[in-house]
Design a protein around this nucleic acid. Sequence first.
DNA 1: CAAGATTGAGGATTCAATCTTT
DNA 2: AAAGATTGAATCCTCAATCTTG
Lengths: 174, 174
Amino acid sequence: MEGRCDGGAVDEARFQAWLNLLQGYSVVSARIETELEASIGLSLPEHEVLVRLAQAPERKLRMFDLASLLLLSKSGVTRLVDRLERRGLVVRQMSAEDRRVVLAGLTDEGLKTFERARPVLAAAIEQYFAQHLADHEVSELRAALRKVLEGNGEWHELRCSPAYEQATASSPAS
Amino acid sequence: MEGRCDGGAVDEARFQAWLNLLQGYSVVSARIETELEASIGLSLPEHEVLVRLAQAPERKLRMFDLASLLLLSKSGVTRLVDRLERRGLVVRQMSAEDRRVVLAGLTDEGLKTFERARPVLAAAIEQYFAQHLADHEVSELRAALRKVLEGNGEWHELRCSPAYEQATASSPAS
DNA sequence: CAAGATTGAGGATTCAATCTTT
DNA sequence: AAAGATTGAATCCTCAATCTTG
């Protein structure tokens, strides 16, 4: 039991990295959420629903897919969408093909809120997170976290290319 | 309205890094917590209490300090310590000098549990986190997260050597 | 029966108010 | 009055059970 701290320098470094991940997430997410809540009235999970829906093919996703993207339980998503629907940011639609499926769709109001949140979030990310890092550090951090996610089978590509803005038709501009 | 996604490649990279931090934390902490819960019966916050107390000078900390270390509200710590005390892993002690203060101390049972948790946690960290990273990536990740924490004024050195037993204090309490 | 979604019960956390000590 | 800690009310999340559809 001697050498309580260096049972292995490598192990120790990894443990520290893990603790930093824990704390880094806690601190940054708390600050950013406070900003977002104050300015737009959205919690972080609520906002992420808007993000995911805004990026989805028809701005719609099945509850099930939303749950796996958000890493939330199915019932958690049910209630999260309940709240957003009550506020008019999201609508539920039954699927025509499979009537077990419920689709959550972004409303125009929801899209507007998402657009309004974007600069606020960008500023908060800059202030509490990115500002403290050089560009290469941002890249390294991102790459490392991506590897971890891939290794855990939880990497979901977040595409930006509007390759699927197909006939969505509503044309609210950005 | 074209180029919705690259309002700036740099901004986009930072947003992605932020999303990866969000997801990376969620995935890794969920897996690790499941392991720890199954093997030892401790949640992540419960475990962190034991870690912090084990590293503290006399294996004691004020509730207040525990709260800031854990980034938890004061009431959150009160209830967290309640649970641990009920299980015999922690004891509350009144401070002799300042009777407003309550100290949370690690019991022998708590120390034993902490020791039992250590290898389990190390294995889980390896499996769900460190295994997917090269040593240099671990270092980079850790350094970047540390910078972020420092930038937010939330960096707490996690020391292993009990080198700071200075007369903690009867400094003026205002 | 399996898959998708919802509901009810219980746990954990937070804010605001309260209590005690300085 | 201020600091440290606790309590009560409210919120959010999860697990297990349930309901509906394939």
